[in-house]
Design a protein around this nucleic acid. Structure first.
Lengths: 157, 157
DNA sequence: GTCGCTGCAAAGTCTTTGCAGAGAG
DNA sequence: CTCTCTGCAAAGACTTTGCAGCGAC
């Protein structure tokens, strides 16, 4: 049975925990914990959306108008977070990537081609099959992504 | 049981057929059949690789040195073919898209993160589940794509 | 204090577009 | 002939990089 994930962040990862992970990561690599990096992590955490670097940047500017965060820092931090597997990126047909927190909370995506909205879900059956397929073909699986494109409930009206 | 697709093009779509489809498509939209468009379709057909616009362009320049095909025409034709569902594009983590012929021969992809090679496969079980999941969530499915990332057999050595 | 980080702007990529001449129908 | 295509080069969109001053540790 597949399961729609509506509030997985609250259930599985507390912000405190996330922040600590981030700090450990930074310390381990002799990197510095800056206000910009914190704000980026926090904004990603508080957003239910899948954000592009640009939309994330806008959101930060709105939420923290006093902090002049440059788009370059957003890009740099997203790369850092992605390399550390703290965020995952989705590439779409068009241009640009969208980022979301939490590779640990694996899930796949239903993407509406009308309004661009994204619904997340997990299906154990598919997860298992993917692993099996990779094995069958001599592939050492590291990750996977699945997108279903279609028209969401709202847009069908 | 999943199935690796090794030579699906030969088995399912003849080039003649493909070319005719393309010509019909063009005629239907009052577009013209040009040598550049033919060469692009033919090169896509003859290649087993998933091609980027740039690699396709290079390949064409090598194969048809007399024909000065511009990269812009390659982009324009790929967009045309994609809009008409004659080719499908894959977006990767990095930048750029790769194109392949034949939306009709649906299959998913195993992508090696080391060498970038792509193995195609079909798994009925997953195909069915995807359809079901979309239905369960009130989604009218139009298309889907699935990629498994990992390390291929060769690169494990 | 040191050394990494930031914002800015410049430089890179990749892709799209405008245009005048070429070519398909 | 007409109207679309093409190649070229310029423009655009998105992302990365260099640098000088700033700030975490």
């Amino acid at each position: 049975m597949s399961k729609v994930i509506t509030n997985f962040k609250d259930k599985t990862v507390e912000y405190e925990q996330l922040l600590n992970d981030f700090k450990s990561l930074l310390k381990k690599n002799s990197l510095k914990f800056t206000i910009q990096r914190e704000v980026i992590l926090e904004t990603l955490y508080n957003s239910d959306e899948h954000l592009t670097p640009e939309s994330l940047h806008h959101l930060i500017q709105e939420t923290f108008p006093d902090l002049k965060t440059g788009i370059a820092t957003v890009y740099r931090t997203l790369l850092l977070l992605e390399d550390s597997n703290m965020v995952t990126s989705l590439s779409f047909g068009a241009q640009g990537k969208k980022y979301e927190l939490g590779a640990k909370n694996h899930h796949d995506h239903l993407i509406c081609t009308e309004c661009g909205c994204i619904t997340e879900f997990v299906d154990e059956e598919i997860e298992d099959r993917q692993e099996n397929i990779a094995n069958e073909l001599g592939f050492k699986m590291k990750d996977h992504s699945m997108q279903i494109y279609g028209i969401c409930n709202k847009c069908q009206n």
